[in-house]
Write a protein that binds this DNA or RNA. Sequence first.
DNA 1: TCCATTCGCAACTATTTGGTTGCAAATATA
DNA 2: TATATTTGCAACCAAATAGTTGCGAATGGA
Lengths: 108, 108
Amino acid sequence: MESRRDVFQAIADPTRRAIIMLLAVNAMTPNALAEHFDSSRQAVSKHLQILTECEVVTPEYKGREIVYHINNPKMKEIEKWLEEFKLLMSRRFDQLDHVLNELQNRKK
Amino acid sequence: MESRRDVFQAIADPTRRAIIMLLAVNAMTPNALAEHFDSSRQAVSKHLQILTECEVVTPEYKGREIVYHINNPKMKEIEKWLEEFKLLMSRRFDQLDHVLNELQNRKK
DNA sequence: TCCATTCGCAACTATTTGGTTGCAAATATA
DNA sequence: TATATTTGCAACCAAATAGTTGCGAATGGA
């Protein structure tokens, strides 16, 4: 559980996506989060650790409790990537591609 | 390399994200794609297999060649999830949360 | 001070992942 | 027909992942 720590890795796991959604509604402690899942507190804690490493989530230390918050700017990176993808899709040149294929076939 | 096949798993790997971007520009065969990467054709092929399972990509059989296309509707699922997240974020009730915490502290 | 609670860390396990190589099937070309 | 090209599939491997249990540190209340 070491490498390739980015937002996309963060949202790959369904439990982590659920954690993100719960934290989007309300910042929470690991225990409060764990109550929403079948898996143990430690499992949730590990996901929080990963989410923290990805900077998708930020811990706020309050005495012995740790309240986890969504780090919104990091989530925007997904949006950004998606926008870029959509831009490329809108610019795709199937027609030109078709023409090029035709030319190549004629060449042969 | 078996389970949990969804769009989020599909975009978790940086190579797969690159493949998606390339295919967004222009539908391509595995060989054409592999030229853009250091890893072997088989590695790229495996990613294409995963992307096909996730329905992020659709194969078009042309004789011995297979042209891979982006399956746009599937990509929209990411957008959909992100929209839901953004909605929850916009509705988050930090103020209320704060009030509840205050009440709880007083109760103790 | 003593005890319960909250939590991270370490060790361990089974499964999944991303990659490799080798091979066989199908198609195109000579 | 013989040969080269494009491709998927199977077997294998090292590393990462998701989960577990057990422990110890720090905090807060009695």
